[in-house]
Design a protein around this nucleic acid. Sequence first.
DNA 1: ATGAAAGCGCTAACAG
DNA 2: CTGTTAGCGCTTTCAT
Lengths: 327, 327
Amino acid sequence: MATIQDVARMAGVSTATVSRVVNNRQLVSEKTALKVEQAITELNYEPSVLGRNLRTSESRLLLVLIPSIANPFYTEIIRGIEDAAIDQGYNILLCETGSDPKREDIYMNLVRNRMADGIISMDPAVNKVRLVELAKNHPIIQCSEYDKDGVISYVTIDSELAAYDAVTYLLEQGHRKIGFINSDNQYLYARDRYSGYVKALGEFDLSIHKDWIVHVERVGFEDGQLAMAKILATEDKPTAVFADSDMLAVGALKEIHKHGLTVPQDIALVGFDNIEFSAMSQPTLTTVSQPMYQMGKESAMMLIHKIKGMPIDNVVLAHELLIREST
Amino acid sequence: MATIQDVARMAGVSTATVSRVVNNRQLVSEKTALKVEQAITELNYEPSVLGRNLRTSESRLLLVLIPSIANPFYTEIIRGIEDAAIDQGYNILLCETGSDPKREDIYMNLVRNRMADGIISMDPAVNKVRLVELAKNHPIIQCSEYDKDGVISYVTIDSELAAYDAVTYLLEQGHRKIGFINSDNQYLYARDRYSGYVKALGEFDLSIHKDWIVHVERVGFEDGQLAMAKILATEDKPTAVFADSDMLAVGALKEIHKHGLTVPQDIALVGFDNIEFSAMSQPTLTTVSQPMYQMGKESAMMLIHKIKGMPIDNVVLAHELLIREST
DNA sequence: ATGAAAGCGCTAACAG
DNA sequence: CTGTTAGCGCTTTCAT
């Protein structure tokens, strides 16, 4: 591996000149620049980012914390982050935490250690205390998940309004018995969506029917199945169900079919997130779509601005109800 | 940000001693170690990996190249890589290339620049020339995809045998008209699976029926739909279809339903990969399962061994035919 | 336009 | 057991 020294020696110039050629060609005379470039190709020289970073103390690497890459919800967001980051000369480091504090620690240390310049956290289960602590000294943005009162800047949608819109749509379709498969209340978005659900029912003078509300710990296919099984086991079954996530909805769908019922004839179903598969299921899923690509893009830009010391504001983006075959 | 110097000064020792406490506590007397640790917590010191890496010229970072994180096939593999890597004191850098040479370049440069110690490539469309070139100077492993004659070590399954097994199973079920949705022939695995398909048919004295074989450019849901539409448009429809990937199979499933046909009664369907969704579709998909977690684990271990200069051998793992509702 | 020299934060001989 | 010292590869004043 050739170093800047080797190039300098071969070109008969100083390392400073080589560095200039690599970074600011215009500061060097055409003639020497040519000599240097020749040496560079000859030696197959590639500057060591390590040396450069140590000197400039920036890595141009962005950390993206996600609980699981298996969750398709994050796919589009990440694409948005990536595009914006690369456009700004940054690369991203995808970190799957599995919501495991140990893994989180390893990755958070990467920014402490100056291996990365900042973090975009999308993990709703992340250790908030540690994250806030870290945010004191390092640029950190939350995407999708957030704290209302928090010190950490965020990009998100209005979860309460989104749930309100979905449930209101079902009500307008004539449904009066509406079930709700929701995430654990430890998550702010779950509490927000619950508020939206309650508010929508309230406007139609409907009261809460506890049996129709099921909380799940994880947001997976099986959890959706189990939750739906519980709802179907109630005496007075709902005619529509709003699920907090498409993964849950797809699980619910499977369970409904298993009971010999049809969607949307027997039970209407609304999901959340507009993951790729929600358009592939049988029937396709009505769902609340978040502007995921844009969320990613916005958070990357916010983070980079923060890294550069520019002022930033929280961003709340608009959602959209996608009406498909399941309602 | 405190540096090792600050800690040394505060503890009244040399930087070497601080370094020892951080890396090899046992080389330092209990008393001084305590003093140093006190200073470390006091100053909230975190060693800079940049400095360390520059010195040791290793980053303990592994690059994982995938075409798309959206493809669930890679999920389990990555989990395997991650577990093995973390266990060995390495972290992984997930790089989505989108099979775009420019993106690939950026990521490949990361190892040239000594930001990463090695690469696990899972991109079948990766620029082979560049990869082979890079492999001359840097540790690189291919996972799932590979070159038979190649210089790059790999972990994979026997694609030909896997396809042979799947098609033979359909033949044993009594099917004689078997369609095949295959990836583009530029991919070695596609050619291998074609051989397996031909071989199985040959053993039952069946000849190739060109109309029943459709090649797709991408391995997505829509591609599966389109391919199946073509097959269903043939005069003499097959009674079974083998798809090169579960994503294709799920698309095919949708198309079959659209035509008012039933699986497996009218058409039996076999997928490939055993992605999570293959167990969620309606009906669930018979599929060829690759030992994805183990593939990931093996490739990570191989790469780390290679980085450490240990000798390594190619690995071919066993597949398994998972019989479910679609056949 | 170019070179000399200092130093980013760390580790690893070597010496004591 | 501990300190001294010499860099790892690079950028960036400060001179010239």
